[in-house]
Design a protein around this nucleic acid. Sequence first.
DNA 1: GATGAATGAGTTTTCATTCAT
DNA 2: GATGAATGAAAACTCATTCAT
Lengths: 202, 202, 202, 202
Amino acid sequence: MRANSSSSEQDRSFTERGRRAQIVEAAIEAIVELGYSRASFGQIAKRAGLSSTGMISYHFRNKAELMQQVVTDVYAAAEELVGARIDAAGTARDQLRAFIESSVDFYRTNHRQLRAITEIFLNERGDDAALPHRRELEGMRELLRAGQRSGEFRDFDPHVMAVTLRHALDGVALRLGVEPDADADRYARELETTFDLATRAG
Amino acid sequence: MRANSSSSEQDRSFTERGRRAQIVEAAIEAIVELGYSRASFGQIAKRAGLSSTGMISYHFRNKAELMQQVVTDVYAAAEELVGARIDAAGTARDQLRAFIESSVDFYRTNHRQLRAITEIFLNERGDDAALPHRRELEGMRELLRAGQRSGEFRDFDPHVMAVTLRHALDGVALRLGVEPDADADRYARELETTFDLATRAG
Amino acid sequence: MRANSSSSEQDRSFTERGRRAQIVEAAIEAIVELGYSRASFGQIAKRAGLSSTGMISYHFRNKAELMQQVVTDVYAAAEELVGARIDAAGTARDQLRAFIESSVDFYRTNHRQLRAITEIFLNERGDDAALPHRRELEGMRELLRAGQRSGEFRDFDPHVMAVTLRHALDGVALRLGVEPDADADRYARELETTFDLATRAG
Amino acid sequence: MRANSSSSEQDRSFTERGRRAQIVEAAIEAIVELGYSRASFGQIAKRAGLSSTGMISYHFRNKAELMQQVVTDVYAAAEELVGARIDAAGTARDQLRAFIESSVDFYRTNHRQLRAITEIFLNERGDDAALPHRRELEGMRELLRAGQRSGEFRDFDPHVMAVTLRHALDGVALRLGVEPDADADRYARELETTFDLATRAG
DNA sequence: GATGAATGAGTTTTCATTCAT
DNA sequence: GATGAATGAAAACTCATTCAT
């Protein structure tokens, strides 16, 4: 019998959720240290302090479900922080600034998580994995279009700008992992200025 | 004796280089279609029209060397095109524009190659793989600094801007693979405007 | 202390026997639906409405003991029905007819049970599992020999005839599982005629 | 790269066919000695003198294909012998006799093979595995119907008789495996008499 | 009695690499 | 140069069994 037979998050017990979270964290560690293709159940189990890979299969139906959970968890944490900051901002220009600033804030302590889901996106080809990513791009396009309608932003292509911003931010997260002494604030400030100049009207 | 024992490119015969190029092309196909973690020698051999994986081991010391060759080949082709266009440009501002334009030109027909080396960079952790990437960033920083010294560019952080541009361009390449009808020119134009606005002096 | 430590059937409590019967029934279901090799404790527990395979281990020393119990239970039920019908018959010829008829009667509602023990016999190689099977063959030989002594049956080899009848009946049970609309009476009538013709004296 | 990528039997090289036959033989050994559920690739490799289970996967796409090959090989050998003997017989009665006699002849040296495919039939639930079995039953029904049309056989149900004969013969094969000193001729003679008496017209 | 978590051995399968021909 | 066969390690996943609660 396995614990992963229940499908909904609420159905899971306290300890069960704890174990899953612990395994998700270990998966992130393994991906960041070794790369997706070498992040085997064996490596993940070792980092989770589990004595056998069977324990991972006990908590997750298969490897795809574990990877999906990594993506879900990281997105949930990011949206909680970033969403609140955007909602607190007034104009579209301030919202864009808040989005960049809070994203970099998130990466400051979570660049490993970002690195992990970047690798998962590239390797897990199913549409399920890419869904939150597409939803996020959609949200960014909407924010940019709203600013264009209100006259705050110039007449750029919202899709191209959203893609550009998304990947620029990914780049920051990647850099924060590679450069140990990187100053996150510096990245935030520069990106805010850059995209403010690139988007603002006349 | 095996073909991969010679270390330098010049030492290789014409047919030897042809075979290696053919395998490199097949490796790119496999990575793009299946993802790095599923791009096995078997899949690569199939795409190269070889009936045995032994042939790959004959031409490359090991899998890492093959992946290294993919990176080297793609960078060489890109630099040939992009370098010439930059050299032909006059001011730093024109050089930046030429860099973006020629990069997107390259991606138009080579986004699969870009996708492949992106996946390789993330998975091959050795410093060797990242070397050309670091060299390219260095070149971009230099171009930006030159524009600041000449007064064409405002006083941004060259490193952050280089990283931002690099990943924005990666995003374009990725998008050209994902969106079948994507208009490369549109991406090029928008990016040129965006980074022109973001970098130019007062 | 665990329930399976007591060796004799009498020692077990009422509820204990109920639980064991419930698990035995679930094991039969699992074997019939999935085949012996895929009838895991997990599948059996699911069909028994248990949320943990531990419960099965609690009631049975090991998997072999559970399978043994399946065989024992099915044989006990079959012998109860078939034995009574044979005892009620007079001549050897009538006994043979009664044996076939009551066997098919049993299969009509219990072909799943028969299918299960057929698979268990083939997979559990220990002598214990085959014991009731050997005892039954012995009984059939005795019935046939008695008919030969009384002059009702011709001079065939009782062992071969018993084996033939036994497997012919197994075939009927298997067919009743495979053919949804099979007519058990038809099988019974044909087999009675067939073995009557095959055994009767001149 | 794997040898099993070619689908047709003719495409395979001489040595490839030899290896496959050797593995099929080892699979039969393993199933007969251990039972289907314990006949793992490890056990089969050991009996085939292979140093790793990878070799089996190299020659067969998966376990199901190996088991299918066992069934195919055994049926092909049996049909070659039995088919020739039936064709050589004249009347339906002689054909039935020839069928039984040649089947037992085949079991004399091949009861292990029969035992193996019996277990495979019970465990591999896919229709593919059962196909040759259904084809054989169909042939037997046709033989019996022809005898009824010609007036040689009485008016029994051909389907029930075919099933009975098929399982009676399976029983012989099983017995020849269990009883080391069993006399195959005795089984053949008794079965011929039994089914002759059971089928012949008034 | 019952549950869920844990364990460790065992399963099939994939893979890079080597080597004889 | 090229092929196919072989090897052995490692992969994901399953399972019977044990045990604390």
